[in-house]
């Protein structure tokens, strides 16, 4: 089963996302800030990362940039999650290397669709 790393500082959102994803059969890993997220991504090599953008320690953009710079983590797809609905935010996220972009509150059905689209066929 695919492993998804959820990097999110807000406890409620993190918990909710983790439980809903787990219910769909994903193996969910959690990280509460950018730095821990980076470590976990390097250690556990998840199949996909859901990245909140406004994170303490290391924000989502910088974390994504580093992920995409690391040879071991470069291939992991990243979906940016942000409460900022501005078009500029989307552009900024994509620029940082995110593969997809989703605004909060998350439309879960749509998020699942995007996850499905980014995961390798064999895993889903």
């Amino acid at each position: 089963m695919a492993r998804i790393l959820v990097i999110e500082d807000n406890e409620l959102n993190r918990d909710m996302l983790a439980r809903r994803l787990a219910r769909r059969g994903f193996e969910v890993l959690l990280a509460i800030d950018g730095r821990i997220g980076l470590d976990k991504a390097a250690q556990a090599a998840p199949d996909l990362i859901l990245m909140d953008m406004s994170l303490p320690e290391l924000d989502g953009w910088e974390a994504t940039r580093r992920l995409k710079a690391g040879p071991a983590t470069r291939h992991i797809p990243v979906i940016a999650l942000t409460a900022h609905a501005f078009a500029a935010d989307r552009a900024k996220a994509l620029e940082a290397g995110c593969d997809e972009f989703e605004t909060k509150p998350v439309d879960f059905a749509r998020l699942l669709e995007k996850i499905g689209g980014l995961l390798p066929e064999s895993d889903s």
């Binding site: 409620l12 959102n13 809903r20 406004s54 900022h84 609905a85 605004t103 909060k104 509150p105």
Partner: peptide, 23 residues
């Protein structure tokens, strides 16, 4: 922008948890 962020985050939880519970 900040307000939007601050409002959306709890809303995110409200909507998400209700959807989860409905499931």
């Amino acid at each position: 922008a900040n307000m939007s962020h601050e409002l959306r985050t709890p809303l995110n939880a409200v909507i998400g948890y209700s959807q989860m519970l409905m499931e």
